[in-house]
Every structure is written in C-alpha cells, then in structure tokens.
Design a protein around this nucleic acid. Structure first.
Lengths: 120, 120
DNA sequence: CAGAATCCATTCGGATACTG
DNA sequence: CAGTATCCGAATGGATTCTG
C-alpha cells in the first residue's frame, strides 16, 4: 500500500537530529487501523487473554474486524498467539516483548484520550 | 460514524480502576486517520510552521489529504491556525496546549516506530 | 469457542484542476 | 502560497453465515 520513503528531507529537521518526524510505513500503518492501538492495550492489561475477552472489552466490534486486527498485530510480532487444541478451543493472546514496549507507549495515550473525551 | 460506548463493561478491568482500555470515539478516531499522528509531531517539532513546510516534511502527500488532516486537528482543538492576510498568503500552525500534551505522548511513539521499522 | 469466508456499503485517500 | 472542489478507485470495516 502506501509505501513511504520516510521523511522527504531529513534536513527539514534540525541537522544533528537523525529523527524523522513522519515515519509512515511499518508499525504506524498498522496502528492507524481501527482498534489497533486499543487492542494492544487491552491485551496488555488482561494478558493472557482469550479472544472472547478481547471481544467483550469492546462493546460493538464485528468478529471479522477484530480477528483481522489480532492477526495483523500477531504477524507484526507484537502479539503472541497460543492455541490449545482442546474442545472447546482456547486461544490466548499476550504481548511479545516488543508489544510490551509499544504498550508502555500507548497506554498513556489512551488514558489521556479517555480523560479528554470525557472531560469534553 | 462508529459511535462508541467506551468499554463494554468497566468491570472487565480491575474494579478499582476507572480506566477504560478501549476508548473508541473522540481523539482516537482522529488519530487513526492517515498522517494524523505524524502531523501532530511535525507541527510540534517545527512550530510555528507553514503549510508548505508541513507538506515538505512528508514526501508524497496530496494537498487535499493533508489539508483535511490539518483541518481535523484544528477543529479538534489540537492545532491552532493563524492566517495572515498578506500577499502571498501565509498561514502558521502551532500546537494548542492540548496539542502539546498529545505531542508529548506521541513523539516517543514515532521515535520507537522509526527505530523498529529501521532495525527490521 | 474462536475464528474464516463472503459480500457489500462506506469511507478514505490520491490525482487533478482551479482560486483568492 | 495555501489551500478548495470534484471525481474516482482502492481499501477498510461491518454483517452474516458457517465450521473445526
């Protein structure tokens, strides 16, 4: 999809900084999909967590969407999916180390968002 | 659009916590749109910044998309838009206080994303 | 239970003009 | 310069149905 070339010009930013203020591809693309950020935090908060629990954490999400999101994050190496072959089937999600790093960054964001939206 | 009712059940989360791990509407919706997060950080890094500078910071963005994003964020009270009636026209964007709060939260995220994507 | 598979409506973003 | 207006194709999310 939207392949990106990082910043147009690194020099737009203070010369000594290697930082790019607009990384577009990769993780950021993922996080721009619906529920993505929230899923990371929900899993982090409830892990190990089963599919149904995640679904319950959100009020109204279609299973197709949620499972897509879960897959995306798993593929990206942010979630770890453990499947137990029992009946009924059970699946547990938890954060990978990278996922945990990310969660640490995202959690404050959700907290802020919640306060702000509520205090509106 | 996707109106949300916060968490399906607040008790999904530790009882003493009032935190909801999946706020869906409001700001989070905004931030899930393309470039939104990056725009906040670019403006924060370069403020006061002109439209063209923001555009330049991203390699390939259509002006329509970028300007929509800028509008969204301005309407949401995260950006402040100052228009000077000169010729040629000049417009400056900067973060509002809330925008700055948000940027403080998002900036580490972009840094992390950049590292991660790069180190892939 | 935990999804996968389909199908479809909608949204979103990009390209392309055009303007004060 | 800093957008706006239009149009359109691509991508996404939701509903529904079905299965190991």
């Amino acid at each position: 999809m939207s392949q990106n070339t990082a910043c147009a010009d690194e020099t737009t930013v203070p010369p000594d900084e290697t930082r790019c203020y607009c990384p577009l591809g990769g993780v950021m693309d993922l996080l721009s999909r619906k529920y993505a950020i929230q899923v990371v935090c929900v899993v982090g908060a409830l892990e190990p967590v089963r599919y149904g629990e995640v679904e319950a954490a959100f009020g109204e999400v279609s299973s197709s969407t949620l499972s897509t999101r879960l897959d995306d994050l798993t593929e990206a190496g942010l979630l770890d999916r453990e499947q137990y072959d029992e009946i009924p089937p059970r699946v547990e999600y938890r954060l990978t180390d990278e996922g945990a790093e990310l969660r640490a960054l995202l959690d404050p964001l959700l907290e802020w968002a919640q306060e702000r939206d509520g205090a509106a």
